[in-house]
């Protein structure tokens, strides 16, 4: 493991620097610094992410959005040379604590990637894989139920129920992305991280995924990285703007778009850079 535990695991919950503390804070990040070798990708990022809503990360390419996202499910651990300092708590528990197994953590913090990446297996197997390795189903019918429910929640059931045993890679891009979402929710995560989930999709598929995100927000804490400000505006309740590894500002989405406090945010949303 290249990432370290937070410097002070027992630190009392500091009042957050810029973000208002909601009643249901799901993810609490404090002074997050991430390094790739000698290069620092994130600088003292501190934020609270509320539960059961969509939070959008925006910012120019290379500003560290993905890096921060991957810190939340410790996917950065799998990257050689990646070093983490700071503190991230989920449900008020430090996820970089020694007692936390990143593999278990990732089951409750699902992730959806930019390019749909279904396993080259059947649709059924794609969804069933997570529950199987986590032993969530004891019988075949329980598994069938999980697969059906997950596909249902991902809005894909109607389209694939007759071809569950055909390869998932045979679906269209949008369907694949929803399959990947179904796969993620099959293990009953609490948080779903989405890294530009629509950037490889056409507009119609994008709309469907956005609708799905809206639906899922009722039950999950969703964090979405997006390049499209329109998308952020459409789906998210809160938006965080990153720039050069810094969290510039974070707030309700309308506020960020209509009345940004920082001039860099202003420049970005008016298209002056990025």
């Amino acid at each position: 493991m290249t990432a370290q535990s937070a410097a002070n695991p027992n630190s009392p919950p500091n009042p957050p620097a810029g973000a208002p503390m909601g009643p249901e804070v799901k993810v609490q990040a404090r002074n997050v610094n991430v390094f790739y070798g000698d290069k620092q990708a994130l600088f003292d990022v501190t934020m609270d992410v509320p539960d059961k809503s969509v939070t959008a990360f925006i910012g120019p390419s290379g500003c560290g959005k993905s890096t921060f996202l991957r810190s939340i499910n410790r996917m950065n651990d799998t990257i050689e040379n990646c070093r983490f300092t700071g503190n991230i708590q989920i449900n008020a528990r430090d996820i970089y604590d020694r007692s936390v197994d990143p593999v278990v953590l990732r089951a409750s913090v699902g992730m959806v990637f930019q390019k749909p990446n279904p396993f080259p297996k059947s649709i059924y197997e794609n969804v069933a894989y997570g529950p199987r390795i986590h032993s969530l189903a004891r019988t075949r019918s329980e598994m069938d139920a999980i697969v059906e429910r997950s596909l249902m929640r991902a809005g894909l059931w109607g389209e694939v129920k007759d071809r569950l045993h055909q390869p998932g890679t045979g679906l269209s891009g949008g369907q694949q992305q929803r399959l990947v979402i179904a796969r993620a929710i099959a293990v009953s995560p609490e948080i779903i991280l989405m890294d530009e989930p629509c950037s490889a999709l056409d507009p119609i598929a994008t709309t469907r995924v956005e609708e799905l995100i809206g639906d899922l927000a009722r039950n999950f804490c969703i964090i979405i990285v997006t390049h499209s400000m329109a998308q952020a505006a459409r789906v998210s309740k809160r938006t965080a703007f990153f720039h050069l590894g810094n969290l510039v500002e974070m707030g309700p989405t309308e506020e960020i778009f209509t009345n940004p406090r920082d001039s860099r945010t202003q420049d970005y949303i008016t298209g002056r850079f990025g």
Partner: peptide, 27 residues
């Protein structure tokens, strides 16, 4: 084998071993 397959497996909580032996090696 594309890294996305490893990420996919790790992303839903497969261990490194599981990712390799269930997904990468068969491919």
């Amino acid at each position: 084998v594309p890294p996305s397959i490893r990420e996919a497996a790790l992303g839903i909580g497969a261990s490194k071993m599981q990712a390799v032996f269930h997904h990468v090696l068969p491919l």
